[in-house]
């Protein structure tokens, strides 16, 4: 099985790119692949806990938590998060926070890197 590194820089609300990236992660994990998921820029919005699911907005906290339970490694850019007021205290349990070199280190031995840019 392979390793997929996904980087997504788009916001949770206002873009469907994170929805796509999470669904892709789920499909890859379902097939037995390892997935490292990096969020940076506005994508760090995904890391906040307490997201409320409304039908008119993307709500990814539950699927992300389920995927973490299946082995997804998901990490937010710490500086991007802090700049937006997303601190350690309001980060979803299990969601890691690192500097940008974590993403590049994950790419080091990834079979594929899928980078999904920001807005």
């Amino acid at each position: 099985m392979g390793k997929l590194t996904i980087g997504c820089f788009s916001s949770l609300v206002g873009s469907m790119s994170l929805d796509f990236a999470v669904k892709l992660s789920a499909a890859a994990i379902e097939k037995g692949h390892k997935v490292d998921f990096w969020v940076s820029g506005n994508g760090t919005m995904l890391s906040i806990k307490g997201q409320r699911a409304f039908k008119d907005y993307s709500a990814l906290m539950k699927p992300v938590q389920e995927l973490m339970g299946k082995g997804l490694t998901i990490t937010a850019c710490e500086a991007c998060a802090e700049a937006r007021g997303y601190n350690k205290e309001n980060t979803m349990e299990g969601f890691k926070r690192h500097s940008m070199d974590w993403y590049l280190a994950s790419a080091f031995n990834a079979d594929r890197l899928l980078h999904i840019g920001g807005e």
Partner: peptide
């Protein structure tokens, strides 16, 4: 106009400290 170019550069620059993970 967007954050993207700066994020490209900051991520590229982080290649200089990636060894801590490798």
């Amino acid at each position: 106009k967007s954050e993207n170019p700066k994020l490209a550069l900051t991520h590229a620059i982080s290649s200089q400290s990636v060894e801590v993970y490798l």
